[in-house]
Amino acid sequence: MKILTTVKRVTDPDMKVKIKPDGSGIVTDGVEYKMNSFDEYGVEEAIKLKEAHGGEVVVVSVGPKAATKEIRTALAMGADRGILIETDEDLDSDAVARLLAEVVKAEAPEVVLMGKQAVDSDRNQAGQMLASYLGYPQATFAYSLEVADGWATVGREVDGGTSTKRVKLPAIVTADLRLNEPRYASLPGIIKAKRKPLDTKSPSDLGVDITNKVNVLKFEAPPARAAGQIVDSVDALIEKLRDEAKAL
C-alpha cells in the first residue's frame, strides 16, 4: 500500500507569540521551528498502516529549504522517502492544496494522511480543498482508521460526539490528536534517514500558479484579559453576571 503523508514546518506552538509592530506578521527571531503536531499523528498513522499492510510512505512538505528538517524527522520516524515543494512564499491553503494535488496525481497513493490543521495558522482547509481538487472522498478529524478491501473506516471527532465514516480509496484522511501516540525519531532512525531519498521540486515544476487567493491584511493580538474578581457569595456572582457582564 502506498501512503502519502504531509508535514508542515511551523513555529513552536509553546512559545509566546509576538506580533511585529506594523502587524505584517509575527516576530520570528529566536523562534524554534517544529513539525506541525497534528502532522505527527498523520505520519505515525501512515507508518502504522505500512507496518500492518506493507508498502511505502512518502512524506511531502510545502515550504522553505529548511523544511527538509521536518521531512527528515518524518523519515527518521519511519517514512521511506521525501518530497519538498520548495517555496519561500507564505501560501494560502488553496495554493498548498493545488500543489499537493499535483504530487498526489503523480504518486497515486491509496491513502493521503494529513494533520487536520496546522497549529500556526489554524486554518483547517488544506485537506478538504485537496480532496475537492482531486475529486477524492474525505474523512476529517480522524481518531481511528482501519483500511481493508479498498475502503477506509474512519472514526471521527465531531461536535457533540463521534461519527464513523466509510470512504472508498483513494481518500484523504486528516488526523486528530487521539488517533495514536506518535513515536519519537530514534537516533538510529535519524541516521538511517540521512540515506533516504529526498527530492526537491519547485511550484513551477508542478505547473502550479501559487498566487494567493486569500491575503492576510494584518495581525493583531487579542485584547488583554481584564483581571478576575473574587466574590463572596453566589448571590453576588449572579448580580455581577447580570449587571456588569450582562451575561444573564
Binding site: K69, R72, T73, A76, Y184, A185, S186, L187, I190, K194
Partner: peptide, 13 residues
C-alpha cells in the same frame, strides 16, 4: 542536519 534533528528529538522527549 543529523545533529540538529537529534537535538530536537531529545528536546521534545
Amino acid at each position: 542536519e543529523t545533529h540538529l534533528t537529534f537535538r530536537q528529538m531529545i528536546r521534545q522527549f
